[in-house]
């Protein structure tokens, strides 16, 4: 062992025999949540998002009827039995909204997580390497950035006919990772030249460890921001694709509600609520994520934290 020499030379003065493990990472997470909560805008976002998640998780308990139950009167107005009326197919609108939250929240988070994951993997390694491979990645990312997202989504979705939720997540991820990768790459490039990164190389760290243990934690807020942006985009894209009828029209989601409402000319029959309610929910869910983003900014920038309290 290389250390035998020095160990004996230094002896064991002052080094206790009992040695504990490292500090608890849960406290770090708790502090992050507290920071987000301290920003009023973000607090509203957290409450809104919490409400939607609760709606999605407890849909069977909350919803008065089954979402697919079409045994009610068609296109009924708002009443005590059906708070938001019924659809042209005779389903309860409120129950559909509640069940539909499941799809939107799930697609939003799943697509957000996958898109961010790819963006992190590509962006960080792309930012750290200085070889020709960087140019290749550059070309691929530019390709995805330059193609307009919505037409691409429509083409891919039309190609993967009726793949259901999984297909929609895939489409959103394919079209959504590139911009995040570019943002994370430039931040990586600026962190790469910092002394502590060079010091980690001197400590014998492998490139992977340097990137993911030294650089990555220093851009947590950027990654979280990127996640919320990707999730917002995913929720909107999901609704958009389903509204265009490119998803599985048999599942109940806010997007398909809009699709069927449009198909049955809900506005002409005076049933504005059937269009309005899912639309409002989509925008509220997207808004809640954007509001949380205000708090995330404060995570890495103490100055913003102070400014917000004033």
């Amino acid at each position: 062992m290389t250390s035998t020499n020095t160990s004996t030379a230094l002896a064991n003065r002052g080094v206790p025999a009992e040695i504990d493990g490292p500090a608890n990472p849960l406290r770090v997470v708790w502090r992050a949540i507290a920071t987000i909560w301290s920003v009023p805008k973000a607090r509203i976002g957290v409450v809104l998002l919490g409400a939607f998640i609760a709606l999605a998780v407890f849909a069977p308990l909350i919803a008065p009827y089954s979402a697919t139950d079409n045994s009610f009167g068609r296109s009924e107005d708002m009443s005590a039995a059906h708070w938001l009326g019924t659809t042209a197919a005779g389903q309860d609108v409120l129950s559909q909204i509640i069940w539909g939250a499941r799809v939107s929240v799930f697609v939003g988070f799943a697509a957000g997580i996958f898109a961010t994951l790819i963006a992190v993997l590509v962006g960080l390694s792309w930012g750290y390497i200085r070889t020709v491979a960087g140019d290749v990645i550059n070309f691929v990312v530019n390709l995805f950035l330059v193609i307009p997202a919505l037409p691409l989504m429509i083409v891919i979705a039309a190609y993967l006919q009726n793949g259901g939720i999984g297909m929609i997540i895939l489409v959103v991820v394919i079209t959504g990772w590139a911009s995040g990768a570019r943002v994370l790459r430039s931040q990586t490039q600026s962190l790469r030249s910092r002394d502590f990164v060079t010091a980690a190389v001197f400590s014998g760290e492998s490139p992977g460890r340097v990137v993911f243990r030294e650089i990555l934690p220093n851009m947590t807020s950027l990654i979280v921001t990127n996640f919320f942006a990707a999730a917002t985009a995913a929720i909107l894209a999901e609704a958009g694709l389903e509204f265009l009828g490119l998803g599985d029209t048999t599942i109940v989601s806010w997007g398909t509600m809009l699709f069927w409402a449009q198909n049955s000319n809900a506005l002409l029959t005076g049933q504005w609520i059937v269009l309005f309610a899912p639309g409002l929910c989509i925008s509220l869910l997207a808004t809640s994520l954007s509001l949380i983003n205000f708090g995330v900014d404060g995570l890495s920038n103490p100055r913003l934290r102070e400014g917000a309290s004033r």
């Binding site: 490292p22 500090a23 910092r194 002394d195 502590f196 010091a199 980690a200 030294e214 934690p217 220093n218």
Partner: peptide, 10 residues
């Protein structure tokens, strides 16, 4: 600049 602000000394 030479110490990663997020890592403990240990």
């Amino acid at each position: 600049a030479a110490l990663n602000p997020l890592h403990t000394v240990e």
